[in-house]
């Protein structure tokens, strides 16, 4: 480095400044007292904790500004524990700062890199030992060893095979069959078209055959939202229009994006919004996506009424419900 570019010189570590407690006995005594008091605060905290655990009723409430009326048992247990712990820490740190040595110490580093002779020594050792093992001279052993080691990994992978069944057709089927009644969720009451006013909605599930219990797996695929608007507001092709009934239209409630329940219906705009990722669907145009990340409309369920006047599914869903998957269109 040329002399012109030389940096400013390092003035070295600044001189140590003594603390009050180092030179003044009184200050040291005071610091000692402070540390002791901090430890005593911790003791108080523990006492508060014990009192709260044994003495405060679990249903007792206390009004605290900011928090509002809050459970006293939980609050004082927590405050006691917090005090007990926090002040031990404060005491220790205050002790270290005021009374323990505060001389800065210099330690020296050495480069991480080993000395050249050590490195050479290491390399030659490895080479020697590898030669002694004779791997290079016995290729048959080497190859069969690699083969066996490679194959042994198959067993643990196979052992995981029973983690779950294969999907099969499960992702594409729901409990909606031709003629399945729509029932309220919860309540399981069948629904007549007249039950639903214009502007009204209903969360529905398929009526299950007697004896079958509805599991969460079923709800995850079967949930449907019924919406009634004025029939003239529909903007549907003839087939989709035939899937509605007197202005009542049914969509899968499971979002075509990531499977959240899309039931946020705006009566004024006729839009359905998914609260998870804000995909917005237009009910009048067969749940066409008009905003947000979803790439597909919500599947529409074809509905009609049965002989007793109750709403039923005309046919199963014509496409898989819920989020996309690789073999969805196969």
């Amino acid at each position: 480095m040329s002399k012109e570019l030389a940096p400013l010189s390092d003035p070295g570590l600044p001189e140590h400044i003594h603390r009050k407690a180092d030179v003044d006995v009184k200050a040291a005594k005071k610091a000692e007292r402070q540390v002791g008091i901090l430890f005593l605060f911790s003791v108080l905290g523990t006492l508060l904790f014990v009192y709260a655990y044994l003495g405060i009723d679990e249903d007792a409430f206390i009004f605290v500004p900011v928090l509002g009326s809050t459970n006293a048992h939980q609050l004082f247990l927590g405050l006691g524990l917090a005090m007990a712990l926090f002040f031990i820490g404060m005491a220790a740190v205050h002790w270290a700062k005021t009374l323990m040595p505060d001389h800065e110490v210099i330690d020296y580093r050495k480069e991480q890199r080993s000395k050249d002779e050590d490195r050479e020594d290491f390399v030659s050792t490895v080479k020697d030992r590898a030669n002694e093992a004779g791997l290079g001279r016995r290729p048959f052993i080497k190859r069969t060893m690699l083969l066996s080691l490679g194959l042994v990994g198959i067993s643990p992978v196979l052992l995981l095979g029973d983690l779950g069944p294969l999907p099969g057709n499960d992702q594409k089927e729901t409990n909606w069959k031709s003629g399945t009644r729509l029932v309220t969720d919860p309540g399981d009451r069948p629904i007549r078209p007249s039950d639903l006013e214009v502007g009204g909605v209903a969360q529905v599930q398929p009526e299950l055959p007697a004896g079958k219990v509805r599991h969460l797996d079923d709800i995850a695929k079967d949930s449907v939202l019924l919406i009634r608007i004025r029939p003239e507001e529909f903007n549907l092709d003839a087939e989709r229009l035939s899937w509605t009934y007197e202005g009542i239209i049914a969509f899968s409630k499971i979002c075509s994006h990531m499977g959240c329940a899309v039931a946020l219906y705006e009566q004024t705009t006729k839009h359905l919004l998914c609260p998870c990722h804000q995909s917005t669907f237009d009910v009048t145009r067969a749940a066409k996506v008009i905003f947000g990340p979803s790439a597909r409309p919500l599947p529409q369920l074809a509905i009609t009424v049965d002989s007793q006047g109750y709403l039923v599914a005309k046919q199963p869903f014509s496409e898989p419900v819920g989020p996309s998957f690789w073999g969805r269109n196969k």
């Binding site: 629904i191 639903l196 006013e197 502007g199 909605v201 209903a202 919406i227 219906y265 009566q267």
Partner: peptide, 18 residues
């Protein structure tokens, strides 16, 4: 009544007791 954007929850879909 379903004011503004809110849909109507009719008395058969969500009974008065509900």
């Amino acid at each position: 009544t379903g004011p503004q954007a809110m849909p109507v929850f009719s008395e058969t879909i969500l009974t008065p007791q509900e």
